[in-house]
Design a protein around this nucleic acid. Structure first.
Lengths: 224, 224
DNA sequence: CCGTCTTGCGTACATTGTACGCCTTGCGTA
DNA sequence: TACGCAAGGCGTACAATGTACGCAAGACGG
């Protein structure tokens, strides 16, 4: 059944591949995650990977599942609102741990166990709070979409691609902002300061709070 | 100065390239949009494209800008809330017109004029409604993130890749749902019906309404 | 000791983006 | 009218990538 590998080198496995993939991903971004590069990182031939992974696509699924597994959902604290806040924040932080993969995660959600666990928790909190199924589903989706959008935006905004682009894009953004015609984009110009001043955390929390306020109102008015 | 092309074939241009790119994109998805395929569609050699586009990346930027230009933002109707609703809905619908490009658009936002116009409008509505700059920025971001998340989710959910996958993924989703262990995912199981029953439009509108409710409360309480 | 199963791998190929340089075309100018 | 030239289309070529195929080496059961 279970073969024992040569003693001088521990055998390949999906786990080891996943770990190396995350490493490469964080270092070189999604485009840098090639089969050969990954194999090199593992000190292994490129084709060896295919014994444990059917496809590059399969590899990416593995990465997504790994990231989701890595982001743990906090336990309940009692209140539905604080629970949802905690879940959403944890999800955002967790997904931002591997910025190169945000596109993957937001694109391939809903397939494996990892995503389902978060949905299960969220639905559980909502239904326990008294939301009916339809509203709970909508609220869950809205929360997920908000997190997905935020994560994507933040990952891209700081330099979607690789390290160096980061500073470049930010400067580019500022310059572009300053170069906008005042008469055509007055509000952008006026709010530009606030735009760069607001921290990503604060902006996310504000949006999240507003959304939860909204659902709280629904519940209070019995429309849920 | 301006050369006249041969009469039998109108010359290449960014506009024509854009149109063809959208066509290919809608037909074959993002992965199907290769330089050669695009050139073929235009009845032209692959390298000819590079006279008008520096990169594939540049081409994708062109596509994004084209899609944004295509999605027109509705004019003001008077109320800030209905305005924001209209803008968000229009954005969602507009971006969903080319499902293969949702990843692009949500990833490359904030670069060109197209995205900025929507932000300008949104900020204008918010600031005119009495929101301070910081809150307006946060609200704009939340709205954008919600739209981005929804668009991505819907595009991926109906078959992120190409036509055939659509039915496959949906069936896969249902099957996966039914196969979930009852004791581990009770809420998912219970809400599964509602999950597939709720239309994407309704779900989006519900989330949007809740978010706007939240900001309305902020404004009413003077916290904006 | 021998088949056999597992797993790593070398080679090879199709597909992609794109650098380079040629060639045609039609204009402006002399 | 003739010339030269710039713009724009294109053929060839190459590097990088995903991956099919089949071989080889080791470990295990008999």
């Amino acid at each position: 059944m279970s073969r024992v590998p040569r003693a001088d080198r521990l055998p390949l496995s999906r786990e080891r591949i996943l770990a190396a993939a995350l490493e490469v991903l964080d270092a070189d971004g999604l485009e840098g995650l090639t089969m050969r590069r990954l194999a090199d990182t593992l000190g292994v031939g490129a084709m060896s990977l295919y014994r444990h992974v059917t496809d590059r696509d399969d590899l990416l699924d593995l990465v997504v599942e790994g990231i989701l597994a890595e982001t743990e959902i906090p336990a309940s604290t009692g209140g539905w609102r604080t629970d949802l806040e905690a879940i959403a924040r944890a999800a955002r932080v967790g997904l931002l741990r591997h910025r190169g993969a945000t596109v993957l995660v937001t694109t391939r959600l809903g397939l494996g166990r990892g995503g389902l666990a978060a949905v299960e928790r969220t639905l559980g909190v909502l239904r326990a709070a008294g939301f009916d199924d339809a509203t709970a589903v909508a609220a869950n989706r809205a929360l997920g979409n908000l997190v997905a959008g935020a994560v994507l935006y933040e990952a891209a905004g700081l330099g979607g691609a690789q390290g160096d682009d980061r500073a470049r894009r930010r400067d580019q953004g500022r310059a572009l902002m300053a170069a906008l015609p005042e008469d055509e984009f007055p509000n952008l110009r006026a709010a530009a300061g606030a735009m760069f001043a607001v921290s990503a955390d604060a902006a996310f929390d504000a949006g999240l709070a507003a959304l939860l306020d909204g659902f709280e109102g629904l519940l209070a008015r019995g429309h849920a």
